[in-house]
Computed example of a mutant assay.
Amino acid sequence: MTDRPDAPAPQPRLHPGPIAIAFATAILLAAAWMWSNMLLLGFGAILIAIALRAGGTFLQQRTGVGIKTGVLLSALAAVLVIAGIVAWAGPAISDQFRQLIGSLPDAWEQVNAWLGDSSFGQFLERQVKDASTGGEASPSGLPSMFSYLTGTLTTVFGGVANLVLLVTVAIFLALDAGMYRGGALRLVPPSYRPRAGGIANELARALARWMGGQALDMVLVALVTGLGLWLLGVPLALVLGLIAGLTNIIPVVGPFLSGVPAVLFALTQGFDMAVYVALLFVVVQQVEGNLLMPLIQRFAADLPPALTVLAILAFGSLFGFAGIILATPLLLVGIILVKRIYVEDILGDRQDD
C-alpha cells in the first residue's frame, strides 16, 4: 500500500540548541530583574488568591455554594472583618499611635541623656561627629520641604494603588485558578506536565499552610504582648501589641522592629519600666520561637533558621521592604523547587518525605 501523493509531509520538530537556550535564559533573567517589582506584586497576589481559594473551598464544602461564589463571599467577609476592626478599635489605635509618635522625641532625649553620662555613649558621640566632619550641610528651606511633601504623597498614593491592584489581581486569580494553572502548565513540555502539576499542587498546599500558621502566630503574639504590656501598666498596650503582631511576619528582624519603639516609649515611664518591657519582649519571643513556632511548623512548613536569615538579607537587599516581607514564602518556594526538580529529577535522589 503506497502513501497518497497529496498527503502533507510531516513537519520536523525544531529543537533549540544550547546557544539558543542560553540566550533565552539570559533574556528571561534580565526581564525578571527589570520587572522584579511587578513579579513581587504578582507573587503577593498569588498568596492572597490561595487564601481566598481556601476560604471559597471551605464554604463550598460546608454550604454547597459554587467555588466562585465562595471566593467572593470570602473576600467580602475579609473586607467586613477589617472594616469592623477599624470601626471598633480604629479611633483608639489612631489616638495611641499619635501618643506613641509624640512621646518618641522625649524618649530619645532620655536615651541621649543616658548615653551622655556613660563612657560608651560619649565614645559613640565622638565617632558620629568624626564621621560627619566634612560632610555637606543638608538642604533646607522651602524647596526641601516641597520635595519632602511631594515624595511622601507619591509614596502614599503609590502604596494605595499597589494595594488595590494586588487585591484585584488576587480576586481574579482565585476566581479562575484552574484556567491560570492550566495556561501555565501548557508552557511545560507535555511529558513533564503531570510532574509540574504535582509540584504546583505541593507549592499551593505549602503556601496555604504557611499563611495559616503565620496568621495564627501573629495573632497569638499580638494578644500575649498586648496583655503583658497592659498588666505592666504601659499606656499604649493595644497599639504596641498590634505592632508586635504585625512585625512578627518578619522572622528574626520583626521582634526587634516592634521591641525598640516599645522600650523607647517605656523609657518615658521610667528606666525600670523599660527594663520590664524589654524582658517581656524577650520572654514572648523565646516562647514563640521555642514552643509556639515549632508546633505551628509541624502543620505548616519547617524552614531552616539559617536559610531564613540569609533569605531575609538577600531579598531585602535586592527588593527592599517588599523583599523582606516576602522572603519566607519565597524561600519556601525555592526549597520545594530545588528539592523536587534538581535533587529528585536531575540528580535522581528520591527519598520518602
Rank of each mutant, 00 (worst) to 15 (best):
L72I: 14
I312D: 01
A54V: 10
Q11G: 04
I249L: 11
L104V: 15
S74R: 00
G226S: 06
A45I: 12
E109V: 13
G348L: 14
A54R: 14
G198T: 13
A32Q: 09
V252W: 09
V79F: 12
I325W: 06
L163Q: 07
T63R: 01
L331G: 11
A20M: 05
G56A: 12
F256R: 12
I46C: 01
S317C: 06
L313H: 06
T25Q: 07
D3R: 04
L187K: 10
G241W: 00
Y342V: 11
Q60V: 00
A244Q: 08
A26I: 02
P305K: 03
I19Y: 03
F281L: 02
G254N: 09
H15M: 15
V81E: 10
F97I: 13
P190F: 04
M34W: 08
T63N: 00
E109M: 10
V283C: 14
G17N: 06
L40K: 03
V282M: 07
L229R: 02
T2P: 11
G121R: 13
A89W: 08
L318Q: 01
T150Q: 09
W108M: 15
R4Y: 01
D95P: 00
A244I: 06
A24G: 14
P251Q: 01
A204R: 13
G241D: 00
L41E: 08
D95A: 11
S317P: 12
R98V: 11
L59M: 02
D3L: 10
A113C: 11
P139A: 15
I67Q: 10
G66C: 08
D272W: 08
A314E: 03
L185I: 08
A24Q: 12
G233V: 02
A301I: 09
V282D: 05
I85V: 15
A54C: 14
F172W: 07
F271C: 08
L229Y: 04
L347I: 13
D117W: 04
A237D: 07
W114I: 04
L330H: 03
N112T: 15
G241H: 02
R181M: 00
K68L: 10
A7W: 02
V253C: 10
S36K: 03
R350N: 14
R126E: 15
A322K: 13
L280C: 09
L142H: 13
G102Y: 01
F321A: 12
L330Q: 03
T69W: 15
G348N: 12
M179C: 00
L326C: 03
I27S: 12
V309M: 10
G44W: 00
L47Y: 02
S132A: 15
F281R: 00
P329W: 00
G254I: 01
L295V: 07
Q127A: 12
G158S: 09
